[in-house]
Every structure is written in structure tokens, then in C-alpha cells.
Amino acid sequence: MTTHYEVDRSPLIAEHARLIGAATATVADPQVRHRGTFGGALAHADPAGDLLAPALAVEAEMVIAGPDGRRTVPAAEFFVDYFTTALAADEILVEIRLPKLTGWGAHYEKFNRVAQAWSIVAVGAAVRVEGDTIAQARVGLTNMASTPVRATAVENALVGQPATVESIRAAAEHAAEGTSPGTDSNADADYRQHLARVLTGRALVAAAGG
């Protein structure tokens, strides 16, 4: 089992899966990152957890083992509902496969009220810039529904656009489309949708800049 600490310190993650590394570095505190695991966090499927949306955005694949052998499930089908995954009662998650996004910029922008708290909303963004143009973009939203959400409208609005703050901000206006965030003591649904737009802009600007 791979701890968050191991993910955070992995040279392979730093080179090929920077968004996963960036999100992992924000999980809880160092003590938790030494005990908690990447696979455990995904299998737990708390929509406020920080690794689900990045895993969805980078199109991770989950290898699941059970009595009938192994099967592979894409992240888009793995997260089913609150704390609910495609794992059956007699199955376990044994492997997470991350596509290489080598050379992509990435950033995880997290909003919470106090250090080490769960994300009220967070956004993971990975961007591949060619020259001055955004060639590819991936955006995942944390805590904007009962499962992580891929902001496909933002991604589609970005591709082919100049890598400027203006075009990124315009694309980020689509961030709340298709989301169904909950309301709790920290934030109403409206406020979460506002945060999604603002944080998506920040995450993308940071990702495109580096």
C-alpha cells in the first residue's frame, strides 16, 4: 500500500503525474500522510477527499481484485456516489494506474477555513501548453457533487485558446456547469458554485504558468 508520503516524495509522480502529487501534498497533515494511503483515499470515496478529482481528471484506472480475478475500471466509472465505489463487498483495490502526463503543468487549488480541514471546494487542473496555446486541459472538481466532477465544459473551452489569464478566466466561468453541490455549515450550493469558478481560474493560471 502506497502512503501519501510516498506519493508526495516519488520522483516518478513528480515527473509524470504532477497533479496527483500536488493534491497529495495538501492532504491533512504530515502524520496523516505517513499513515493514509492513495488507494485507501480513493476506495473511501469521500467527495471532499482531495485525490478523487485529480484521479478522475487524469483518467486514472483502478485495478480491482476479487474472487473471480482482476478487472480494470476507469475512474469515471469507479466513483458511484457518496462513499460508494464500483468495488463489490468481496473486492479490493489493488492497483492505481496513472497515465503519464509528462511535461504538463499542474496545480491543486484548495479552499478551506482552517488548516488541515476538508476541502469546502477544491480544483485540480493539468494543462499542456504548446508555444502560447493550450493544447490539452484537464480539470477535476472536489466536493461539488456526491462524486468528483470533471469540468468538461471548461476543458473544451480551453483547448486551442491562448494561454493567457483572460482566456483562462473566461473558460473558468463554465466550472459550475453540471455540478450539484451540497449545502452545509461551511457553504451553500450557490457559494460552492462561485468558489468552483474562482478556484478553477486560479488553478488553471497556476498550471499554465508552470
Binding site: 477555513r113 482552517v114 488548516a115 488541515q116 480541514a117 476538508w118 455549515s185
Partner: peptide, 27 residues
Amino acid sequence: YEGATYDENGTLTTGTFADYLLPSAAD
């Protein structure tokens, strides 16, 4: 940060430190 809230049945809805926020040195 700090605020105690109750629902319509009078049940405390800020009964843990995940809901009733206290700042740490980091904040």
C-alpha cells in the same frame, strides 16, 4: 471561526471540531 448552531429540533449541529472550528497556529 467559532459558532454553535442548532437544527430545528434543537440538536447541536456543530458537535465536532470538524464543524465547530478552532484556529491553530497555522491560521
